[in-house]
Design a protein around this nucleic acid. Sequence first.
DNA 1: TTTTCAAGAGTAAACGGTTTCAATGCCGGA
DNA 2: TCCGGCATTGAAACCGTTTACTCTTGAAAA
Lengths: 342, 342
Amino acid sequence: MNRRRSTIAEIAARAGVSIPTVSRVLNNRPDVAPATRERVERVIREAGYVRSRVANALRRGSSGIIDLVVPDLDSPYYFEIIRGVEEVLERTELRMALSTTHDESRRERQWLRQVIEGATDGAILVLAQGQSDRLDELRRHRIPFVVVDHRGELGPDVPSVGATNWAGGRAATEYLLSLGHRRIAIIAGWPNLRCSQDRIAGYRAALEEAGLPVDPELIRPGEFRQQTGYDQTCALLALPEPPTAIFAGSDLQAMGVYAALRAHGLRVPDDVSVVGFDDVPIATMVSPALTTIRQPLAEMGRMATTMLLRLIAGEPLDSMRVELATSLVVRESCAPPPSPDH
Amino acid sequence: MNRRRSTIAEIAARAGVSIPTVSRVLNNRPDVAPATRERVERVIREAGYVRSRVANALRRGSSGIIDLVVPDLDSPYYFEIIRGVEEVLERTELRMALSTTHDESRRERQWLRQVIEGATDGAILVLAQGQSDRLDELRRHRIPFVVVDHRGELGPDVPSVGATNWAGGRAATEYLLSLGHRRIAIIAGWPNLRCSQDRIAGYRAALEEAGLPVDPELIRPGEFRQQTGYDQTCALLALPEPPTAIFAGSDLQAMGVYAALRAHGLRVPDDVSVVGFDDVPIATMVSPALTTIRQPLAEMGRMATTMLLRLIAGEPLDSMRVELATSLVVRESCAPPPSPDH
DNA sequence: TTTTCAAGAGTAAACGGTTTCAATGCCGGA
DNA sequence: TCCGGCATTGAAACCGTTTACTCTTGAAAA
């Protein structure tokens, strides 16, 4: 019924023209006589011919694929970014190749090799840590790339998109202060991550502006996981003077905070207020719904992709570093602190 | 400092050998003299040469890419599957091209064209509805594929992996019966979906086995979304004799059930018991933690990928249709029904 | 009528590898 | 010493397109 995939040569033979003519028709070149074009198009349609993207890529030098590299697929955080990337890509002819690094340098090197040999048109890197040497290698191979929310130090010439972490840290803290809280803890990412530093700085700024001291005991670093939220909350509650509000570094951490508070018989927001960070879908599903700092993850993915497309097209970027605004989303997990006599 | 990408010809020239010899070294062919191999390898290393996958693909006819097609990226459900696929793919040389159909046939046709012209080695299709004609087209183009959790009618010769929906529906219902519930509602997917039919059949089987009547009022179809869970729960509560337990078709729906019950001042599990379906990460994060039917989504992704790899390798499949076992995961959202005098 | 030019179509090279097949050199056995 | 055979290596074809360049032809310009 059907043979192997047909080639441009077959079409040419059937239509009684030469190969380049078919190619011209396929690429809508103007220098083809209308009658010829018509005839070739009919044959193409009849044969159900689709041209080989591989051969095309070889000749043209572009593969039609862009790589999206994320640390892992364990967090809803990355999925939001993936969704954003997919959204703009689906309007183009490009395909998205998704891969993970798992933060292992071995895997990452392997990935890098694949990216390079894989004839990638460009790459979007969601990196957990600073791997500038890898970026150099990409640059050396002339592969356009954009970094999303890079949490380390970046050169000023690296295209990247992030969020306003400092403002987010400050906004959350100010909100809690405005409710009357005076002992506010912050659970953050590891101190070597830039985003953590920024958020803590925002937190400090709000506190200092309010004339409040910064208690180092209330700054708890860790991973952006649920477990960290749980463990650090337990540690905070064991303090002589526990906080009345906890600002978590991620919504996942906040889920851990919820669990730890429940385990201690404390209620949110009556006994302790909680603010998250990210605003992933889960934040609206729990009870009480989580007040959080919204990080526009899907938008970040979209923005990174748009930037990459310009880079690929050879157009200049308006700005190498783009920071999208975080915003406070008030839900139900915060209230004024319990009265002192409690 | 660095020129364009180096080619095999340059390497050959530098090493003082012919092009085929370099190719042989690259492919680890045995028929190269050790000394020559050594020399060529050194040059390759020095030049930082990586071979073009595109050129390779053209000659060899395989692109090193497999397509993963999902309906959308809105549900954690799909992410679990994606994760499973990625897990086995990361041990291979293959890359994953992720795309969405959004259930629109236009998008889907476009995707199909891309898949075909994109020189895909194979495809994993997570389809929401039966699109057998599309499958035919894939087959016609000799592209190996595996379908995950196809919810419609499939020919017996279509490789597919799913879960034991009937058993899951039955297990959930039996569990609720064992707790003493007698009025058990089920919120399901649309009736045209095979998985919904199966689950409802399992539900009926358990009820009939217990000698209980099946009240059509208690079977509520809808989408697998939170909103559906909310709406249908409201409808159920408005019944003259509301159920004491609700079996939701997805964990997301169950979140809607939680919200509706809370809105009506009812407590889980004291007033109403809830069982979910899927066991996505969120199930453990809410309070009370959701008792649910675990669907091994990541395993399904892994299994589908493994099957696809065999198909690509030309090996025969042990079985065209694989169903992975669902299992009841008991957490905190179920309890015996409230006493009748309540 | 001759020259010029543009449109339309074809020839061949290129893209960067892999593979088939033939050629070479060196070895041992007769 | 001659020959068959094996280990290496190279020349050339090929994968399916695109593209630079050439060629033909008919009409307008001179």
